[in-house]
Write a protein that binds this DNA or RNA. Sequence first.
RNA 1: GGCGCAUUCGUCUAGCGGCCAAGGACACCGCCCUCUCAAGGCGGAGAUCACGGGUUCGAAUCCCGUAUGCGCUACCA
Length: 486
Amino acid sequence: MANSVRLRFAPSPTGDPHVGNIRTAVFNWLFARHHGGSFAIRIEDTDQAREVAGATEALLESLRWLGLDWDEGPDIGGPFGPYLQSQRLDGYRDAASRLLETGSAYYCYCSSKRLAELREKQARLKMDPGYDRQCRDMTAAEQIEWAKGRATPAVRFKMPMDGSTTVDDLIRGRVTFENRLLDDFVILKSDGFPTYHLANVVDDHTMKISHVMRAEEWLSSIPRHLQLYEALGMEPPRFAHLPMILAEDKSKLSKRHGAAALLEYRSSGFLPDAMVNFLALLSWSLDDKTEIMSREELVRHFSIERVAKAGAIFNQEKLLWFNGQYLRKMVDKDLAETLLAYWRAYPPPEIPDLPERDYLLRIVPLIRDRIKTMSDAAPLVTFFFRDTIDYETEELVQKGMDRQSTKVALERALDVLTQIESFDAAATEAGVRPLAAELNIKAGQLFGSIRVATTGLRVAPPLFESLEILGRERSLGSIKSALERL
RNA sequence: GGCGCAUUCGUCUAGCGGCCAAGGACACCGCCCUCUCAAGGCGGAGAUCACGGGUUCGAAUCCCGUAUGCGCUACCA
């Protein structure tokens, strides 16, 4: 038996999906799944001028990456399709016709030039901006006269001149607007396409959407939508206006802030689970301490009552921490495979030939605690995949030592490592560590030189574990060539 | 300008009249652990709960006002 809870995510394909949009998708999805309802994707492509090629696919790809599955959408269809507004034009025209017939709407012949002048004049005279309703009460004869030599008229909605409209928002409670403060907005543009207001209302109704969860920037338009529902004789859905995601400067997060494009987080090596967890916690919380939650836990606990009212700044530091937490929870096998898949999608220049899975499997435990995103991995493990390693000779010389003492230390280490029976981490460490006292240097100094000689790095995965994976031959070879440099 | 929404540590937040001289997390600082770097453990610093009035025996929590921030004010969404 189908549940009557139906949510929808309705983005317009005007560019790269950004974290603000996607967070709205996350909340809608969470709410739908929590209630066992359905989740639909509807593309609001009613502005031909602003449409960006590939934007719809990027939107779907973003949701797929995050694992937010949908039951109906432009790619899979569904009982209320099509899910592209540009393919549902008839429905909007029918609605506009009905509104025209019942006297709730009228044709507007004003040119964009006149409208621009009107706005300019209103600004100059410090009058309230808005359409002056010139075409509102035209007679049929006047309309015919006006229509001569002009392009197709737009259709405007007759906003009531008095009274007020109140919405009972699930997050903000009752919010009231004076009708007379709103102008007669366009519902059907002269190019035959609907504006957001009309299309949104008509589609949410025909698609039987039960809850509309969208960003707070839409709260100001709610009286228009409610009036539209009423004039159309439709029962409005429930509304919940989500607080916005803000940039560091507290302004609305947008492309110009950078770091807003969702898919960039994928290429930067973030994990979808971490991203969903982080996004879910932006203006929503379970309690005073739970932060790490799996997708299932989020679905189980999500409730609109616990959505906050104030906007939240998108904090990348915290996202990084979440990602680290998720990385650390992964078992070796998963981490190795995820890393391999990531490298396949975004080949790291340091590693031209991707390693064998089994080989990577041994390396992964050494770096798991040392990376915050998958992009941190390559620089740390490159030496495992190279025949020769690269570094400045001076790097071999540790603080408090000189070339000569470094050379002596490495020679002794070479001796020990050459003779050692088993080349595992425990054995090599047991063999090398005593050398420090013998040479009268600190273990850190000794290990530091060996580290640079064998990995080329000053900051690297644990030394002896790395040597074990490198194997005796390569390890000794590296030390020998370091000796030749000194 | 008008309308609307919001306001607890730098940031994300807990708090829905007494349990709060405000709890958790990120970031920051210190200590421990330690072969580097991390991770981890422990501890510290950090919020006169925007401000001012009320209501109440009692307010971060309720009401009013002010300030500030943000959003909307397109034939864009």
